[in-house]
């Protein structure tokens, strides 16, 4: 036992200078990583809004405005029918489909009648008003006021033949999938609605 302790230490490991250099390199790397990931603790959320029916217009805007109230950095990327939510005229006239909606108190054969979508929409609009639920227009204005970035997919704008002036003031246009992906990559929460 005692002879072991007195034996010279095998020094096959790196020299002190090498170790110091390694430590310094690692410290620099950690410092760079810290800088790269430092977002001040601010959380971030990206929502992809793809639907343009009255019922499906609500969830993205409710979540977006609420997350903004939490101080989050929020982007809602609107594509395909989701674009109608940002369209000033169309957003005030979003419809609810009576067909294929099992929550509707009517069979599909009745729901398929030509006027039933209007009936279902009117019913829902009445409920929204009675319940004190915000309108889509109010939620858009609120979201924009709270700093939510509402983005309109440029490809879909052109596909649908919309004009950029037809969207609410403050809506971001001229953006595509790459912009959405870029924000999603750094986001804490990503949702497709």
């Amino acid at each position: 036992m005692s002879s072991d302790a007195d034996a010279p230490v095998e020094t096959t490991t790196a020299s002190v200078e090498d170790l110091q250099a390694q430590i310094q390199a690692l410290e620099e790397e950690v410092s760079d990583l810290r800088e790269a990931t430092d977002d001040g603790g601010q959380k971030s959320m990206t929502i992809i809004a793809t639907k343009g029916t009255l019922d499906m217009a609500y969830p993205p805007l409710i979540l977006a405005s609420t997350a903004a109230a939490f101080g989050w950095d929020v982007v809602v990327f609107h594509t395909f029918w989701g674009l109608d939510i940002l369209h000033e005229k169309k957003s005030k006239n979003l419809k609810l489909s009576a067909v294929g909606n099992p929550s509707m108190p009517m069979p599909n054969a009745v729901a398929a009648l030509p006027f039933m979508d209007s009936v279902a929409t009117n019913m829902m609009e009445k409920k929204i008003e009675d319940n004190g639920t915000a309108t889509i227009e109010e939620l858009i204005e609120t979201s924009l006021d709270m700093g939510v970035d509402l983005q309109a997919c440029q490809m879909t704008i052109e596909l649908m033949g919309y004009d950029e002036d037809e969207f609410y003031d403050g809506v971001t246009t001229g953006v595509g999938a790459a912009t959405a992906i870029q924000h999603m990559a750094d986001a804490d929460v990503q949702l497709m609605i």
């Binding site: 609420t66 903004a68 109230a69 004190g132």
Partner: peptide, 8 residues
Amino acid sequence: LSCPMPVV
């Protein structure tokens, strides 16, 4: 007012 307005 109902959700999300009170929080917002």
